[in-house]
Amino acid sequence: MDADELLTRYSAGERKFSQVSLRLVNLSEMCLSGINLAQADLAKANLSHSNLRGANLIEANLTAASLWRTDLTKANLIWTNLKAANLIRANLTQVDLYQASLQHANLRLADLSGADLSYANLSGADLSYANLSGAFLAKANLSGANLTGANLSNTDLSDVNFAKAILFKTDFSYVDFTQVDLTNVDMGECFLSKVKLPERRLLEVN
């Protein structure tokens, strides 16, 4: 399927396009809200600046796709492959990214507020200056991730892996760290207002 066929069928009211092959397709600046692209192959596709609000992208392959400034508000991205995807300034508010693969994805300045990132793999991802306030990150893998200037206030970080993550001026206000392994994690330059730290860490901070 090519872009023209998909857009023609979408304009006619069709929404179900699961398992279609759209590798390298250019769908930038298009309105595709509510589309069903579950298990679709969108590797290296260009979806920048498009409207994908409420889209179903469960298990879709978006490896190295361009989603710059794409609106994915409340989209379903469970088990989606977003490895090395460009999500700079993307709107991922209240998105479901349960067990999604986001290794080395570029999420700089993205809005992930209220998103479900539980069990997601964000190892090596660039989350600098991203907004993750109120997100659910239980058991997420953030090893080697860049969280410089990111907002993680009011997030659930239960059992998160922060090994070798860059935490510089990261906002952790109102976060409960009692179930987080902070061994060898440098939080000296982070904002820690109203946080709950493990007893051992409290002794170190004091």
Rank of each mutant, 00 (worst) to 15 (best):
L109I: 00
L112S: 08
Q99S: 11
H104L: 14
N141D: 15
I88L: 15
N131Q: 08
A115L: 02
A110P: 11
D116N: 10
L137G: 00
G149F: 14
S101D: 10
N86C: 14
A115R: 02
G144K: 09
S123A: 07
N121E: 04
Q94A: 04
A120R: 00
T73H: 08
I88H: 14
N106P: 14
T73M: 03
A140H: 08
G114N: 02
S153L: 12
L147P: 08
S118L: 05
A150L: 14
L97A: 04
G144F: 11
D116F: 00
A110I: 10
K83A: 09
N151Y: 12
A85C: 14
L109H: 08
L117I: 04
L127K: 10
N86Q: 15
A135C: 07
S123W: 01
A150G: 13
F136Q: 02
L147Q: 10
D116I: 00
A135H: 07
L72S: 12
Y98W: 12
N141V: 11
A138G: 02
L137C: 06
Y129P: 00
T80Q: 02
L97D: 01
N141G: 12
Q99A: 10
L87Q: 06
Q99R: 09
A85S: 15
S113R: 07
N121T: 07
A130Q: 08
A84P: 00
R108C: 13
Y129S: 05
G144R: 09
I88K: 15
S123M: 01
D111Y: 09
G114S: 02
N146R: 12
L72K: 13
D71W: 02
K139W: 00
N151L: 06
L137F: 01
N106F: 15
A85I: 14
A120N: 01
D126F: 10
A130M: 09
A125I: 14
Y119D: 02
A120C: 01
A150P: 13
N121I: 04
K74A: 11
L107S: 03
T73K: 06
L142T: 12
A90D: 04
A84R: 14
S133C: 05
S128P: 07
A105W: 04
A100F: 13
T148I: 01
W79G: 00
N121H: 08
N131F: 08
T73L: 05
R108N: 13
I78T: 10
N91D: 12
T80W: 05
A100R: 06
A100H: 11
K83D: 07
L77S: 03
L102R: 11
S101L: 04
A138S: 10
A130P: 05
L152F: 13
N81A: 05
G144P: 09
D71I: 01
W79H: 13
N131M: 06
L87E: 08
L102I: 11
N76L: 05
A135N: 04
